[in-house]
Structure formats: C-alpha cells, structure tokens
Nucleic acid binder design. Structure first.
Lengths: 344, 344
DNA sequence: CTGAAAGCGCTAACAC
DNA sequence: GTGTTAGCGCTTTCAG
C-alpha cells in the first residue's frame, strides 16, 4: 500500500507532526530535519492522501460542473474553459451530464455525490422558474443559463434579449426584411429560446417590421439535425424569407446545409446568422456570422465567483453577472458595405 | 454545519451503528427502528459524508479522465461517452486537460490530485514510446490512443493502420488514383498520424499505385484551421489530386472548405474522406464520408476495464483492446455504384 | 523547534 | 438486533 505520514516519520526518525510541517512547508523546521524528512519522502515515494486531508479540512479541492451534454459543442467549449480556469486556481473539475432532463437535474442537486466537491457550477436546461426553490442547497453554487432567474444563488449568464435584438438589427441594417427564426420553443417565455425570440421581436418592432408567425420554425433540442429539419419545414410550407436567425450556431449550420441542398445561395439569396461563436463557425462554408455571447468570460466568472463563494460562505451571494456580447461578422451574413465590395 | 451520523443517532435515540445499518440497508433492522431512523434522517436532511466514507473504504467512487482538450470535438464526444458509461456504474468522472503537452502529461501522472480518484483513463498526445516507463504508476490506469504501446497497463485503441488502409482502398475502388493526405506528421512512425499514414501507404501499395511525397500535407495539431492551411499549401504548390484523406474529420472539413473556396467541387472533382465520424460529419456540406473508428466502444471498454482493474488490482492487466472500424459512406466520397445512381 | 494526542465522519469487527 | 469501539491518514492545538 501507499506510504503514510507514519511511515515517513518512522524512517526519518521524527514524529508525524514534523513530517506534516515539512510537507506544508511550515517555516520553523531545522534545515537538517527538513532534509532527513525529504529524503524519507523521496525514498518511500510518499504522496499525501488527499481524502484524509479533505476529511480533516472539510474541503476537497474539486468543483462540479453539471451540464446537459458534452456532445453539444457549446457545452464542450464551456467545459474546456471552466476546466482551464479552475486549473489556474489549482482546483479540479468533476463533470456531470444531465441530458437536459428536469428530473435528472433535480436529482443531481440532492445527490450525495456532490459531497466529493466544494461547490457546483450548474447549467440547467430542463428545470424552469417553478423549480427556483430547488436551488436552495446546502453548498455553494453558481447557476448558468437562463432557465431560472432570481434564485438564491449567484447567476452568470449572457444578454440574450439584447444580443438577439442586435443580431436582428444587424440583418435589417443589411437590407433584410423577412427574417426566419430557427429553433424557437413554442410558448416559451424564459429560457434561451424564449429570450432570444423576444430580442428578435424587439428588433423587428424597432424597425417597424411586422412579426410573422409563418417565419418561425420550432424545434425541441438544439442539435444540428433539428436545425436541418426546421429548415425543411420552413421550405415545405412555402415560407419566404431573405434571412435566417439560428438561435444557436448548431441550428444555423444545420439550416444552412438544407438551404444549400435546396439550391438557395448563402449569402446570395439568404443571409444566415447564428449564436455562440463556436470554433466551427469560423470554418463552415460559408463561414458563419454569429453572436459571441461571451462564453469565455462566463466560464471565468463562474469559476471565480464559485471559489469566492466557497471561501466566504456566509456572505449573501445572489448577484446577476452578465457577459458582454458582440456580433462576429463573417460570410454568411455580410454587412452591406462589404457585400458591395466583395460582390462580383 | 451538515448533520452527521451522531446527530441522527441522537435524534432517533439509537446508536450510530444502527443508523449506519439503515443507510447501507443492512437487512436485520427492526422495522420500527428503521422508521425512527428514517424520520430523523429526513428531519435533519442528513446526507452521508462521502469523504469520510472514502477515507474509510479507500475508494472514492470517482475516476479521472485525462485528455488533450475538450475543445477538440473527438475528445468532447469521447468524454461524453465515458461520463455516460461511468454514470451507469454509479461512478463520477473528473476531467483533466493536458493540452497535449508532454510535460503536463507526465506531471499529471504523478499529481497528488489523482488521489481523489480510484483510477485514470489516460489519453496522451505529447508523450511517446520513450515515456513508456512513466506509465508505471501506483494506481489503476487504462491508456487510450496510439502514442505508447506495450506499456504496463491495459490499452484500448482503434485500428489505425487497418482503418486507414480501408479508407484508401475505398477511394481507389471508386476510381481515385492520386490521393492527397492532410494532417501527416513529419517523420512520425507511431501516433495516429504515423499509423494512419502507414495504412494509406499500404493501401496504395496493394493497388500498385506509387507513393508521391508531393501529395502529403503536414500539420502540427489537428484543428480545422490547420486542415485549411494544409490544403492551401497543397494547392499553392500545384499538387494534382482527385481525392483527399483527412487524417481526422476536423482536418477534412477544414480542407474541404478550402477546396470549395478554390472552386473545386466535392465530390465532383475531388473526393474527401475523414476519420472519427464526428456528429458534424453528418451535417457538413457535402456530408463527410469518414471512418468510424469505434469511439463509443472505446469509451465503454475503457470504463469497464478500468473498473474491473480497480476491483481486481492484483491481477496483471496489460491487454490490448482494439475497436472495430467501419467506413461511413456519405456524400463527400460516394461509392461508385451510388454515384452513378444519384448523379443527375 | 518538535512530540503527543485528539478528532474530522464513517464502517466494520466484535460484543452483548 | 443493536451498541461499543477502533481505526482510515491527516491536521492541529497544546505541551515541552
């Protein structure tokens, strides 16, 4: 079995307290003693048992990140950012997938498995405002996303309404009038789909363009396949549009594919804008104009806020932290002046 | 603070052993006692302290997964599969990113942070055969990938040479003779790039087609941008080819984008095949023919093998487990007979 | 500067 | 059936 403090102490001929002092580099240790101990540590290949240390200290040095599915690019990139940021703080990340299922999310919040961590970054997808009370948990938590607001915890999220409105206005400024939406959720008010749709409506209103239900394509989950299906529906029912707002990049890419299959040119006939600024948005054909909702900032802020909350558990934490967004202009929806330059 | 066994025992008027018996549903507990205890548990909102349990049992119920970067789609999908499989076994997964950097990988193997887990699924990218001794670690480990063979641990991987040869033969069978490779690594023998390139060469040889160095495009990392750059190089130096073998899907998609920018039709002028069968390969334009290297099987097998190794630490584990591969035929490299059918 | 000893919360002999 | 008790390996008063 692995060596323990006792083994090291015995070999070095000192007490375990002295070994402990050396390990935690407590300053007042005689240099000769320190060397003896370090030699013994090296000889035995001793490494501290973190479980014991954690039991003692009540901390684990790990945080949990719960998200729907790493197969969804947005969440994969978010997780990459969270892990990288946690690493800077010397903290390790345990990743849980909920599948975006409400019951699994609720179960997770009460799971004893979270006891392995000091706190949770929670990105729900199935839960809604009615579950706000479930966020009252006995451990530090930071909530992401836009399923639940005004919970008893810190909340880091993006500016969905504002960003979507900006995306819509961007399309309108480039001469688009009939903007289809791919990925709306029927009757949803809160949640990414609901909020981004609201921003879309605001953008139309500001420009005096009437809202047309016939341009809205609904989906369940935001997979590529659903973006493709939604676009096929739109085409099948004869919708006429000169732009598409994919409520995320994945949907937009799926929709774009169907457009091209149907012989509709992007951006010649139809402009397409997405949301997320995934890595792949740079490399699609054409490259995808999109809204960067500040994912890196969200990851960084979530980790820092959680660690702060862990360090100061008594303070009240229920701030709402909003990331900046910006439109990343690429080929699928060029701005007017560029279009006139690049057109043949 | 959170309630402990003692608190529950005191409230229920029993000893902690009885409470422990109830929690671990030990059969011989009088029903009335059980109820009393359960009531106390509910009242106090007691949940067991896993850290203490782990210290006692020497297990943590967690495994670590170390991979280069979740921002790389293949690893994100692999991680999703690993976490899902681990969850079935009631085990939680701690994800570490190494950036594919050799030193970080070596450091990770010796990191005390791994003490928080019962074992490691390790997917190195920077380490090589010369580091095989570093795999001799005092905890259960399963190695993935093709950087290191014949280590002192179980190894789960894909059939790189065979799959690449099959991909090459597939292209040849469809009339292709000049097949460019995107993503080779200069001078590499082992490792994904080296092995897949070897399979490519074998495929050419079997068909009596001479190897042409001018058709090989080298890259460092396998990001989309590098696939694009490699293809630009190939075009810039006037290479003539009628097919492209992207050593992974991401490279193939980047290369395909550049081909189309250059007015080269896929698959009309050039066939493209990738490797990985990422989700997005289904939805690119055109959809990407690719080699499915058995990623799900690898994830499942890695988790099961590791858990088995954790349960039976004494047995010698140094098996080599190989996934089946298969060619997933899509639009970017249609098979001959289908091409003639679907052509207008 | 270093040693002795208590105890973090839990499980598992071992009694009764 | 249920209670007592001894640790798991570590940190941390408190003495010396």
């Amino acid at each position: 079995m692995a060596a323990t403090l006792h083994d090291v102490a015995r070999l070095a001929g000192v007490s375990i307290k002295t070994v402990s002092n050396v390990i935690n580099d407590y300053p007042h240790v005689r240099p000769t003693t320190r060397e003896k101990v370090q030699a013994a540590i090296a000889e035995l290949g001793y490494t501290p048992n973190l479980t014991a240390r954690n039991l003692r200290s009540g901390k684990t040095g790990a945080i949990a990140l719960a998200l729907p599915d790493l197969g969804l690019s947005y969440f994969a990139e978010l997780a990459a950012d969270v892990i990288a940021e946690a690493e800077k703080a010397g903290v390790v990340v345990l990743v849980e997938q909920t599948g975006g299922d409400r019951q699994r999310e609720l179960d997770l919040l009460r799971s004893p498995r979270l006891k392995l961590t000091d706190g949770l970054i929670f990105s729900p997808l199935g839960m809604g405002q009615e579950d706000v009370d479930a966020l009252e948990v006995p451990y530090p938590m930071v909530v992401l996303g836009e399923r639940i607001f005004d919970g008893p915890v810190d909340h880091v999220t993006m500016q969905n309404v504002e960003g979507a409105r900006a995306a819509t206005e961007f399309l309108i400024a480039n001469g688009r009038r009939r903007i289809a939406v791919v990925g709306a959720h029927e009757g949803e008010v809160i949640g990414s789909a609901g909020l981004r749709t609201r921003g879309y409506v605001q953008g139309l209103e500001a420009a005096g363009i009437p809202y047309d239900e016939g341009l809205i394509a609904y989906t369940t989950t935001w997979h590529r396949a659903n973006g493709a299906t939604a676009m096929r529906d739109l085409l099948a029912r004869g919708a006429e549009f000169d732009a598409v707002f994919g409520l995320n990049d994945t949907l937009a890419l799926g929709a774009m594919r169907v457009l091209q299959e149907a012989g509709i040119d992007v951006p010649g006939d139809v402009h397409v804008i997405g949301w997320d600024d995934l890595d792949e948005a740079k490399y699609s054909i054409p490259s995808l104009t999109t809204v960067d909702p500040g994912r890196r900032w969200i990851a960084r802020t979530a980790v820092r806020t959680l660690l702060d909350r862990i360090a100061n558990p008594t303070e009240d934490h229920r701030s709402l932290l909003l990331a900046d967004y910006r439109i990343v202009e690429r080929e699928s929806a060029p701005a007017l002046q560029r279009e006139s330059v690049t057109a043949p």
